[in-house]
Design a protein around this nucleic acid. Structure first.
Lengths: 402, 402
DNA sequence: GTAGTTTGTTTATTGAAGTCACAAAGCCAG
DNA sequence: CTGGCTTTGTGACTTCAATAAACAAACTAC
């Protein structure tokens, strides 16, 4: 039916904020949308109707919904599972992976983990984009854009990878341009965006995972080597003036510790990464599995039984706690989430780590910061997709055809 | 004349952004306002006209302005020097001061520095508010609000001073409530706001001083003792989720350094404050003048001549450089400004400090962060006034009578 | 003087959101 | 099961900030 409703056009209207609320699961009904947007029911209805005709959300008008309260039951708003998708790609030390991610952080399809590595970014990105293009072909879905997560700081606005050490790529490689080249060659006309993997993981966790609702979210995580950090402020990734913020790996956490490639010693980066734990426990890294997996398995299998493992874990936890406390003093987040090895360290002894953060931060007594683990599978991939979705969230009518 | 122009009402319109542009000196003419707001000339004209009738800005339509280019010369927009003011107050270790500050960061009147100190916040705040009320009476100006700068972290939303060590106040004192009480008792009905002095200095410098135009401004400064930090992101003070961010004083800058009251050793706080410099130079703090003044005078008088002073300054500069580099890695600011002793250290040897920040930060080669000194007199007072002005900048029609 | 350029104003129009009234769809008490 | 109460959703009209388009004003350059 053609409504006599207000028709919305692109630009300054409530469509973007409304879609973001549904996207992040904060607007299950039109009624909630009304209060969350601070508009009238009429406006919220018009906005929801428009998002529906755009094919982005569904409105379930069946009665049966458990109301829980008096009054007319509200219709459920949900992301349209048949809607468009974003192409997400991730490259890391051991290979790459591609996926299709819809609104709401929903994974529609993923390729299996691929273990190809190469010193030429073009080659790897070509392969991962080709894998993603296959997924798009198979599913026949409309693609709104593409996002790429890399284990390196990505300089903005250039889109260059400044320290892709673990990929053996040349420093300063123009990953975003190369990514867009590969997209064009694969016949994908949507724009491509790039970001640091930990940053994107934090963004994904903020919108769909353990960071939901946090106003100032701090995320610290190890990859297979090294430590990364990320900060999400008021829903936006804080990546600094040039995209280079939150390189937290070189906070000093042990003045007498091992030397770091940055020239200092005892950096968070070398004191709390998987290799540090393995070495502290007196284990030699094996050839099978990533260092991260070996460290996790060591913690899970022997933390409870082997005093040496326990002592090693405690030492690493203590240094991590010191680093987190320092970050708390500087950033005053209202939530901390941990990924990679840090997540498993928290799992091994949550009391020890949380206690340290509390006692070593200056405001420990004025309110403890909750420390928890990342919860999303493939959070870097989901975060990469968020980059591609962002223009749609900012202005759905301008970003989508029709 | 009554215009047939669009009349603006309170709420979502361009009045606030427009006033902010004039306030920060970024909109000298209607033409610039037009492009900066991204609106049409008609809208900019209506907005300027409205701000003029509110008594906030003046429009100088005299022809003589040096145009410098072709076309019709534009009328100058300026803050109305006869407009309302904000009451600004500052308390510090050696006393207090009050001032009246107009839009544009313009100091209209200040009390002389007063040297009363007391362990009772109510007493001191009563005196400073009374001094401010005198200024208001003398000038007969309308007061839009009041701001207070204190040398302590101020918890939000409680408005309590968590570590007013240098005031000898009780930790957790509800300064904002006390401030508002004192305002009410002095017959000032305007609302009162409180903030940390370094934070407010950074805000003032960002809007009217050395930080203008910086998207991510980092400010580090000493008071008479200790070190404070502040971060202004996209024009807004980043004070963390609870107002407690940027306590940068406890970054480790010398693992073998002197013990700090935080339990660690070699913290920025104790290694780069005025006392640290005096001690490193082998001087005993004298009874006259603040430690800050003594340290400044030492640098100015003897840095060039006394090798011991030079060596001491270099040692402190080196530690400051290390601390700043650490902050650069975490925050990736696009400008750094220094206040207090740090400003004088920069003055003493700018090359040494800037070189350190560059070489010790991870991205030194990818673009150096400019390091400069604060330039505003009374920047904490001006920043305190900014707090009071903020509601007016957000919505002039709602915040002002008529 | 004339052409070209930029700034400012006026009039009419647009479009997102608000107001208000009413309908729909559930609870609950009698 | 009927009528009161509450909440949600929709349609008609209104509001008002901003736009578009035309015009006027004030300068520079030739």
């Amino acid at each position: 039916m053609t409504h006599t409703r207000t028709r919305l056009e692109r630009g300054r209207n409530a469509l973007g904020p409304a879609l973001e609320l549904v996207h992040t699961g904060r607007a299950p009904t039109r009624a909630v949308l009304t209060t969350a947007l601070g508009v009238t029911r009429a406006t919220a209805g018009a906005v929801a109707s428009e998002l529906q005709t755009l094919g982005l959300i569904t409105v379930d008008s069946r009665p049966g919904g458990a109301t829980g309260s008096h009054g007319r039951p509200s219709h459920r708003l949900a992301i349209d599972p048949g809607g468009p998708v974003a192409l997400a790609a991730q490259v890391h030390a051991d290979g790459f992976r591609a996926a299709l991610v819809g609104l709401g952080g929903r994974l529609h399809a993923t390729t299996p983990a691929c273990t190809t590595v190469a010193a030429d970014p073009k080659q790897i990105l070509g392969e991962v984009v080709a894998a993603g293009a296959d997924l798009l072909r198979e599913t026949g879905r409309h693609c709104v854009g593409a996002g790429l997560a890399v284990p390196s700081a990505v300089a903005e606005p250039e889109g260059t990878a400044l320290n892709p050490l673990h990929l053996a790529w040349p420093a300063g490689a123009p990953v975003r341009d190369i990514f867009n080249e590969c997209l064009a060659e694969a016949g994908i006309t949507a724009p491509g965006y790039c970001g640091n993997d930990v940053n994107l993981a934090a963004l994904a966790e903020h919108r769909h995972g353990a960071g939901r609702g946090a106003a100032h979210l701090l995320c610290v995580a190890t990859g297979h080597r090294g430590v990364g950090g990320a900060l999400v402020l008021d829903g936006r990734l804080h990546s600094g003036s040039a995209g280079l913020a939150m390189e937290v790996g070189h906070l000093t956490v042990d003045p007498t510790g091992r030397p770091c490639h940055c020239g200092s010693r005892g950096c968070l980066d070398v004191e709390t990464d998987p290799l540090a734990l393995l070495e502290a426990a007196g284990r030699t890294p094996g050839p099978e599995g990533s260092l991260l997996d070996q460290a996790r398995d060591l913690l899970r299998a022997e933390y409870a039984t082997d005093p040496a493992v326990r002592a090693a874990a405690h030492a690493v936890i203590d240094r991590l706690g010191l680093g987190l406390a320092g970050l708390v003093n500087i950033l005053n987040p209202d939530r901390i989430i941990l990924g990679g090895l840090h997540r498993w360290l928290l799992e091994a002894d949550p009391q020890r780590l949380r206690g340290l953060v509390e006692t070593r931060s200056l405001w420990g007594r004025s309110g403890t910061v909750p420390v928890s683990a990342c919860v999303l599978d493939y959070n870097s991939l989901v975060g990469a997709a968020e980059l591609a979705w962002q223009p749609v969230l900012d202005d759905p009518l301008a970003a989508l055809p029709t």
